[in-house]
Every structure is written in C-alpha cells, then in structure tokens.
C-alpha cells in the first residue's frame, strides 16, 4: 500500500521546505500532502489517513496540539504517527504516547534529521548518503 505523509503548517516556506526535504521519499513513491491550518489538517488527515503527520503548533483556526488530540482519539487513525514541530520556548506538555503526539521536533530543525526520521517511521530503506 502506498505510504502517505501529511504536512500541516501555516507557513508556506516551512511547508515547501518539508516537501523538498522529503523529496527523496517522494521518489520512492511516498505521497505527500499539505494543509495550511489546523482545521484543514484534521479534515485531510481524516480523509487521507496518512501514515505520518508533521504538525505545527501555532496555527489559525485550530492549533497543532488540538489537531493531534482529535487524531489520537480517532479509531480510524490509529496507525498514524504524529510528529509535532515546536519552537523552543513554547511550553509543551510532557510526552504522553497514549494520547499526545509520538514525538516533538524542535525548530529550527535539521532536514537530514527529518528525512531520517520519516524513512524510519515509514520503514523505508533509503540511501541518504550520510
């Protein structure tokens, strides 16, 4: 089955950066979708059932933590791995694997790290050259 990644961020350049970062996975056949705010993110998550979601925290309409809560509660999205992209200095709740995101990544993030994590989560063996 085709793997899917959903990127939810209100900043166009961050969306582009994540897309470009994940280009090599796209070449491997992974589908990449984007959403521009929390509500659209949640709708797309429910519609597309991605395997991995990158979620920004501060977004219009619904923030990332709330989107994450809805996703984790949704029985149809059990297999969905949620990575929250947070800026340092934002107070985050302690990691709660049962109800919260699976992991936090701090901005500014290292693209190498992002693609390595994504490949791992999607169980895709990728020669990244490092």
């Amino acid at each position: 089955m085709q793997k899917r990644i959903l990127i939810v961020d209100d900043d166009a350049h961050i969306r582009l950066l994540l897309r470009r970062t994940l280009e090599e996975l796209e070449l491997e056949g992974v589908l990449i979708d984007v959403a521009e705010d929390g509500v659209e993110g949640l709708d797309k998550a429910r519609a597309l059932k991605p395997d991995l979601i990158f979620l920004d925290v501060m977004m219009p309409r619904m923030n990332g933590m709330d989107v994450c809560k809805h996703i984790r509660k949704d029985p149809e999205l059990v297999g969905c791995h949620v990575i929250i992209l947070t800026a340092r200095g934002q107070t985050m709740p302690p990691l709660d694997l049962a109800h919260g995101p699976h992991e936090f990544l701090t901005k500014p993030f290292d693209p190498d790290h992002i693609i390595a994590r994504a490949a791992e989560v999607l169980a895709i063996d990728l020669d990244l050259g490092f």
Binding site: H13, L16, L17, T21, A87, K107, P108, F109, D112
Partner: peptide, 21 residues
C-alpha cells in the same frame, strides 16, 4: 519575547533548512 522568538524561528528554520538542503 516568546512570540518574537517564535516568529524569528520560523524564517530561521526556512533559511537554515533550505541552506542545508
């Protein structure tokens, strides 16, 4: 300061990310 640091971090993330890419 929290807001500013967030606002600074977003473009910084783009700059550094694209540079690294």
């Amino acid at each position: 300061l929290a807001a500013v640091s967030h606002e600074l971090r977003t473009p910084l993330t783009s700059l550094m990310g694209f540079n690294k890419l």
